[in-house]
Amino acid sequence: MRRRSGLLFVAPALILFGVFVLYPMVTAFSYAFYHWQGTTRGGFAGFEHFTTLFTRAPFKTDMPRALLHNVLFFLGTMAFQNTIGLTVALMLHRRARTRRMLQTLYAMPYLVSPIVIGYLWTLLLSPTFGPVNQLLTKIGLESWALPWLGDPDTALWVVILVSVWQWIGFPVLLYGAALGGVPEELNEAARVDGASHRQAFFRITLPLLVPAIGTVSVLTFIFAMEAFALPYAFGGSTGNPAGATDFISLLFYRTAFDSGAANAIGTSSAMATLLFIIIFGGALAATAVLRRHERRITG
C-alpha cells in the first residue's frame, strides 16, 4: 500500500482518537498546575494543589481514607480472584464437555452494568425485605442477619465481595486459556520423574501461569483504582455510610462537580493526576517485572 493512501485510511481514526482521547488526556495534567476561578484559568500554581490535597480539610482526611479503600478493594479482589479463580480454572481444565457452558455461566454477571449490580445487591441485602437476611433467618442464622450496607464495618466488604462475584468469570476465562497453553508433556515428564501432582503444579504449571496472573493483576489494579459506578450505586457520591465506601473517583467527582468551590478544577485535577501516576506507574512497574520473568521462562 502506498504511503499516502495509507495515511488517508488512518486519518479518521487518528483525528477521532486525537481530539477526544489524546488531547483531553494531555491537557488533564496541565489543569492541575494552574489557579482556577470557576472555569477561568488564572496564573501558574506550581504544586500548590498537590499540597492542598494533603494539608487542607476535607482532603487531608478524605484522601488517605479513600486511597486506603481503593487499595483494600484491589487486595481483596486479588486475593479472591487468584485463589477461587485459579482453583475454578484448574477444576474446569480437562472437562471438555462442560467447560464452555460453565465458563459462560460464570461470565454472566460480568456483562451486567455495575450500577445494576449495585442496586440489585442493595435490594437483596435490604434489612427490611431483603431475601438474603430472610434466608439467613430461615436457616437459623439470625445473628448473621445484619444491616450489611448500613454498618460502616461491613459496607466496604460488601462492595468488595460483590465486585469479586461480578468479575470472577474473567480470571476463570483467562486462567483457563493460559492452562490450555501449558504443554501437557512437561507435566507428564515431571510425573514420570516421580513428582507428585502437587509438586508438578507448583513447580511447573504455576510458574508458567505467571504471565496470565500478571495480566489479571495489572487489569485488576487499573480497575480497582478507577472504581466508581459500583460504589456510587451502593453508597451514593459521598460513600455512605459515613464515608465507609468512599473511593478516590467518588472524591474526585464530588470535588469537581459537586463542591462549588472556586478552585474546584485545580484541586480535582491534581487528584486525577495523582491517580493517573499511581495507575500508570503501578501498571508499568508490574509489566516490567513480568517481562523479565517471561524472558526467564522462555529464554
Binding site: 477526544f20 482521547v21 488531547y23 488526556m25 488533564a28 472555569t39 487499573i222 478507577e226 486525577a272 493517573f276
Partner: peptide, 15 residues
Amino acid sequence: LMLPIHLAILPIFYL
C-alpha cells in the same frame, strides 16, 4: 489501551 480515559473527564467536559 492503558489510558484511564475517565480521568480526563474535566478536559472532556470543557472541550
